[in-house]
Amino acid sequence: MEQNLKDLKLELSKNGIFTTTLEELYNWGRRNSVWPLTFGLACCAIEMIATTMARYDLARFGAEVFRASPRQADLIIVSGTVTKKMAPQVVRLYNQMPEPKYVIAMGACAISGGPFRDGYNVLKGIDRYIPVDVHIPGCPPRPEALIHAFMTLQKKLDEQTLRGESRPRHLHADEPSEFPVPEFGAHGLEPAQNDDVFLNETGNPLRILQ
C-alpha cells in the first residue's frame, strides 16, 4: 500500500501535480530551516565556525544565519566545555529559546566533561540540566562530523509525527519546555544535576551504574 502511494505520488509529480501529507509538510518546514544560536564556548566553537566558512558550508543545509539572540534561534549547539560557572547561563539561554528547540552537544566536553572531567569547575556533561537531541563525539569533531550531526537531527525531525507517541515535545501539553536554573553553591552547583532530565529513560541513551 505504501509503495503504491509512493509510485502514485511520483507519477503525479512527473505531471506537475505535487501531493503531500500535512505531517511531511510540517516536518519539511522544520528540518530545512534550523537556525542555530551563536553559542561557542571553547575549541569546538572554532570548528563550528570553520563549518560555516567557505569550505564546509553549513548554510546549504538550512542553517542560513546564526542568530545572536536566543529568542530567534531554533538550535543551540553546545560546543565546548560547560563549566559550573557557565552552566546556569546555558540553561537560561535554553529556557529563553522558543519551541520547537533542539540541542546538539558537540564534542566530548559537552557530552560528559571530556578530557577535563576531573576538574572542580567542569560540569560533567550538559545533559545534566537540559535534554540533548544529538551527541557528537570528538575532540574537536571534524566539520564533517558536525554536518553529519546536523543531518542526523534532520532525520530525527523527519520521523516525528503530528499525533501519537512520537510527537515532538512542543506538541505534548504537559512536557516542560523550561528547566530550572542551577544556583551557585559553596562547593559546586546546587542541584548537581536535574534528575528529570538526566535520569530520563527515553531521552538518555546511558544508564546509571551506581
Partner: peptide, 11 residues
Amino acid sequence: FGYLHRNHEKI
C-alpha cells in the same frame, strides 16, 4: 572571566 576555567594546572 572564569567561565572556561577547566583547571588545566591541576590536571
